[in-house]
Nucleic acid binder design. Structure first.
Lengths: 121, 121
DNA sequence: TTTACTGCAAACCGTTTGCAGTTCC
DNA sequence: GGAACTGCAAACGGTTTGCAGTAAA
């Protein structure tokens, strides 16, 4: 556990947001100015591999790191690209029957709700 | 309507697959060898803007062009990145209640089933 | 002659990689 | 000394853009 890794972990901890690697770099550099983008990526990839955080692709194609590793879904604003968490209580019961699956084994289901956030409407 | 556009439209027409721009280029060049990648992108972007085809991001982050513009969902193999269409008959009834929406206006819901395709299991 | 479209090459953005230098045991 | 980690810079893959040349009306 190095200073760099601690800082990256701290940046993500407790955030409800979905930061890009650049944003993580920004915040990390406020605490440790000499930290580099490569280290940010190294560390983020390790955290993802350990299951500590999640990743997914934002609208623009870049990766977003999600401190909330628990299963949840996303609301995505098609106008400003903002991302909100959502955890449907009915637990998003999308199920495929055997016919629809055609031999595919489904491990997890990801739901993205596209639309407009309150500010962009 | 130029020869190039006709060829791009022909390449996509009737396919059930989800082609990358490069794959569209490959197939288009078999019919029109001098066609360029830039033209492929120009034409694909126009077709998307017209609603003739769909786009989404594949696992690797690149864009996939989907000749099937009708609403449907995807099965995504996390091993070989293959993509299959699926149209749940129960129409994938994931709905958020007003509380969960928090002022967000939902226009469309995208569901991705992650897992293993028959060949990769 | 104007307009739209093409193809090339360069730019671009986010991510990954190679490698030399550093730190810590 | 050896293992692990850092930071730089270069490479990379996919997409977009600027621009000069071409074709069509």
């Amino acid at each position: 556990m190095t200073a760099q890794r601690r800082v990256v972990a701290e940046v993500l901890d407790g955030e409800h947001v979905h930061l890009s690697a650049d944003e993580v770099l920004d915040r990390a550099q406020r605490r440790l100015p000499e930290i580099s983008l490569a280290t940010i990526y190294n560390t983020l990839n390790e955290l993802v591999a350990m299951g500590e955080i999640g990743v997914f692709r934002g609208l623009e194609g870049g990766l977003r790191y999600d401190p909330n590793a628990d299963r949840h879904h996303h609301l995505l604003c098609d106008t400003c690209a903002a991302i909100f968490d959502v955890t449907p209580k009915e637990s998003a019961g999308v199920e495929l029957d055997e016919l629809e699956r055609r031999g595919f084994r489904v491990d997890r289901t990801e739901v993205v709700f596209h639309g407009r956030c309150p500010r962009c409407q």
